[in-house]
Amino acid sequence: MGNSVVTINNLVKRFPVGGDFFTALKNVNLSLEKGEFTGLVGPSGSGKTTLLNVIGGLDSPSEGSVTVLKKSLGETSHNERAELRRKNMGFIFQSYNLLPVYTVFENVELPLILNKVDPQERYNKVAQAIEWVGLSDKINSRPAMLSGGECQRTAIARAIVHEPTLVLADEPTANLDAENSHHIMKIMVKLNKELSTSFIFATHDEKIMDYLRRIIHLDDGQIINDEQIDRPKSGS
């Protein structure tokens, strides 16, 4: 529990469908430690994105408890959860979710503005994050001028610029070709090692699995297998 980043006990998540409920997660129990590089793996509809959203506080549990960075999400207010995300979490999405009217620099800058980091420090951190993902030459480009891989690298820079403890990535390589997928994953492995940032992926992309050090298999809203990998195939 000392290094625990996420602790989930008996989590159930139901969604109203018509007049009934659909149960997306059923009695999920899980613990993730600091610095883990973990994948939630399973077919479409298995509940991996829902689990990621619940961990990020974007969805609330129907039953059970979810503790993230020692804060029980069920007992925190919306503003406390917002602060938790602002300071300690980063998000990477399948469709990048970059703001189209802002440049790469400005998109990456947003989490630091929300954290009220002073302008000089902000500039340094944004420049550093953009350098990490290898986009220093695209700093003033807008998302429409970038390739899919470059957009996702911008999203990664945005997710890690404030050096969060936990990064949640939902299908980060789904829209990318193989070369870009490997490039992205290598960047995240590097950040995981250098910053000790924990990464949790929701994915069914085989390419990602080669990099993971823990794979949690989900099916029909339940964990069916929790697999530790000492030597990932990619060598990470």
């Binding site: 974007l58 917002a82 998000f91 954290n115």
Partner: peptide
Amino acid sequence: GMRLAMGES
């Protein structure tokens, strides 16, 4: 949604 995810209230 994105801004809320990033921690804006």
